[in-house]
Simulated assay, not measured.
Amino acid sequence: MKKFRRSGLGKKIAHNIFQMYIGKWEIFQIERNKPAQSFWRKVIEEYTAGDYAERMVNGRVIQTFCSKEREGAL
């Protein structure tokens, strides 16, 4: 929703979901959706401290990483 853009709410929710479901993750965006790519790269970069991989397959930008239990999460 536009009124919540750039408020940090989406990032916070994503991080909380990553913590709720510990394990391997794969998130993708269509190649043309540059704003979505930017958002997910930033969210995943911060969550993993840069420990993720990115690849392009069939017009999709795909980030993969593993979420782990973290102290003080949620």
Rank of each mutant, 00 (worst) to 15 (best):
K2P: 01
K2I: 01
K2T: 05
K3S: 07
K3T: 11
K3Y: 08
K3V: 15
F4C: 00
F4S: 03
R5L: 08
R6H: 09
S7W: 07
G8L: 06
G8R: 02
G10P: 02
K11H: 00
K11Y: 04
K11T: 15
K12Q: 12
I13A: 11
I13C: 11
I13L: 14
I13F: 01
H15P: 01
I17G: 04
I17W: 03
F18G: 04
F18Q: 04
F18I: 00
F18K: 00
F18P: 10
F18E: 00
Q19M: 07
M20T: 14
M20V: 12
M20N: 11
M20R: 10
Y21F: 15
I22G: 13
I22H: 11
G23V: 15
G23S: 14
G23D: 15
G23Q: 08
K24H: 13
K24M: 13
K24P: 12
W25M: 15
E26C: 14
E26W: 05
I27P: 02
I27G: 07
I27C: 14
F28L: 07
F28H: 12
F28D: 15
Q29D: 13
I30G: 01
R32D: 13
R32P: 02
R32L: 12
N33V: 13
K34W: 01
P35Q: 12
P35S: 14
A36S: 15
A36F: 09
Q37Y: 03
Q37A: 12
Q37M: 11
Q37S: 09
S38H: 06
R41F: 11
R41D: 09
R41G: 14
R41P: 07
R41C: 11
K42N: 10
E45K: 05
E46D: 09
Y47N: 06
Y47V: 14
Y47H: 06
Y47P: 01
T48W: 03
A49H: 08
A49E: 14
A49N: 10
A49V: 11
G50M: 09
G50A: 00
D51W: 02
Y52L: 11
Y52A: 03
Y52R: 00
Y52N: 04
A53Q: 12
A53T: 13
E54M: 05
R55K: 11
M56I: 15
V57K: 06
V57L: 09
V57M: 06
V57G: 04
N58S: 08
N58T: 10
G59W: 02
G59M: 09
G59R: 07
R60V: 03
R60W: 01
V61I: 05
I62P: 00
Q63T: 11
T64H: 04
F65R: 09
F65P: 09
F65S: 06
C66I: 10
C66E: 15
C66V: 14
S67V: 13
S67D: 12
K68P: 03
K68D: 08
E69S: 05
E69I: 04
E69L: 00
E69V: 00
E69R: 02
R70I: 13
R70L: 03
R70S: 13
R70Q: 09
E71I: 12
E71L: 07
G72K: 00
L74P: 02
